[in-house]
Structures are given as structure tokens and as C-alpha cells.
Amino acid sequence: MSLLRLKNKVIVISGGTKGVGRAFAEVAGREGAKIVIGGRDEKSGKEALRNIRIFGSEGIFVHCDLLKVEDCRNLFESAYEKYGKIDGFFNYAGVTPVSPLDTCDEETFEWVMDVNFKAAFFCCQEAIKYMRKNGNGSIVLTGSAHAWGGQKNRAAYACSKGVLLTLMEHIAHNYANEQIRCNYLTLGWTPTEGEISLRESLGETEQHLRNRAAHILPMGRMCEPGDYTEALIYLMSDDSKMMTGGNFRMTAGEYI
């Protein structure tokens, strides 16, 4: 039986319609949280909300294009108008195109940095503004092992995740005195919709991807979206109220 570890908390999730974002949205709802899902896929968002309601909680979907700062602001304004507070923010939205340093074009670089960093920066700005009103809050930024150098064909992505690590440390250092926490959840190699789509565009099937990854990763398999939900519940709950500035690694033993 659930302990309702997130009872009555209001949690905003950017990119909450896919992958780890959606998995956490549904589990957090099961744990008693009110969920605000930000994204572009309304159908998927509303499916997640139906699953949340089955377990007796509630939430809303806010259509937003995270390339637009005004949409980032509207996501948090809508959450506050609906529920009167914001307790947590999980920044999941991100893109991972092929982007080697020696061939990455300006358009790809700007797209990656705008989605992965600029949107996160302004979402965190809004999160802090509303968390101040209730005197505390937890922000979790989605990290990657690529932040420590990265693979050759992910240069722009690696840089975006590296700067998110700096943003996490900045928030943790400068807002702890307001009881606003920020931690970095380093995800491993995960067969999300985006990862599978990218690999298929390069001629690799999902099964081949999984088989190849199983031989590379020390723990013998890829991480699944559901593998991260317990860590996220902990980071959003009062159990972690003294944890900030942390790098929470869940990578199946992968260290790039």
C-alpha cells in the first residue's frame, strides 16, 4: 500500500508527456501529488492524467512550447492559479540529436541549448518565484553522464547537460537559505521514445539497440523510465529536505 509520500504536493513536470517525465507523473500522482504536466503532446498528457485520477489524485495539462520563454512562464502561472502553490519542479524536457563538435551546425546547437538549457533556466526562475511564496521547494534537473565530457557524436548535448550541472550547483548554493533545494539526477542510457526514434533514423532497431547496450553497460541492461521513479519521489519528498546540490547517479554503472 502506498504511503502517499507526496501527499498534497504540487509538482510541475516539463516534458511530462513522454519517457521518464510521464512515468514520474503517474507514480507521483499515485503518491498523492497534484501534477501539472507541461508539453506539446496533449493526447499523451491527458492519458497520463487519466491514470493519475484512477489512483485518486488529480492534475492538469498545460500545452507549452519550451522554446518560448512566455510558455515557460505560463506553465508555472497555470499551476499556481489552479493549486495556489508549487512544491516541486522536475525539469525533464530535452533533446539529444547527433551533434559532433566538428560538424554540428548552428541551428542544431541553438535548438539543443534552447530546449535543454534556456528553457530550464527560465523554468527554474519561475519555480523559485512561486516556491518562495510557500517558503520551500525542490527542483530536480535531469542530468546525463554526457555532462562529464560526453561521447564524440553528442557534443552539443554534452555541453547542455554540463551547464545544467552548473545551474543546479548555483541554485543549491544561493537558495538554500530560502529552503529551496536543487539536485541533479544523472540518468543512464534509457530507451525513451526520443532515443528509439533517433536510433531508428540511423538504421538501428530498438531490439538491436537494447542488445548492444546490454553488452556495453556494466549492469547488463538499459535503464527503464520506471527505474528512476523512486529516486524522484525521494528527491521531491520531505525525506530529502536536507539534500541539495547533490548528483544522484542512476546509470547502470555507466560513466562516460
Rank of each mutant, 00 (worst) to 15 (best):
T166V: 03
E47N: 10
L164K: 04
C159Y: 01
L141V: 00
S44V: 12
N247H: 03
G84V: 15
L164W: 02
P225Y: 11
K7E: 10
Y130A: 05
A33S: 06
E178I: 00
T17Q: 15
S160K: 02
A120H: 06
M236L: 10
I256P: 10
A172Y: 02
Y234S: 13
K82H: 07
A155W: 00
F89I: 07
I13S: 12
L3T: 09
F89Q: 11
W189M: 04
K118N: 09
L49W: 04
A79L: 13
T103K: 05
F121G: 01
G21H: 10
Y175L: 04
P218M: 00
L165A: 03
F24W: 11
C104Y: 02
C64H: 05
A120G: 00
V98F: 03
E26I: 12
N116L: 03
L3I: 15
G246R: 05
C124Q: 04
S240L: 07
G59N: 14
M219D: 11
R199N: 10
E31W: 07
D65Q: 12
A155L: 02
L66D: 06
D105P: 09
E178T: 03
H63I: 14
T251A: 06
E47P: 10
A176L: 01
T17C: 10
G245H: 00
K129L: 13
D71C: 13
D238A: 15
A252G: 11
A231C: 06
T251Q: 03
M250F: 11
T166Q: 01
L202S: 01
A147P: 01
W111M: 15
L66F: 08
L3H: 12
E224H: 13
T229G: 10
V12H: 11
R53D: 02
G188A: 07
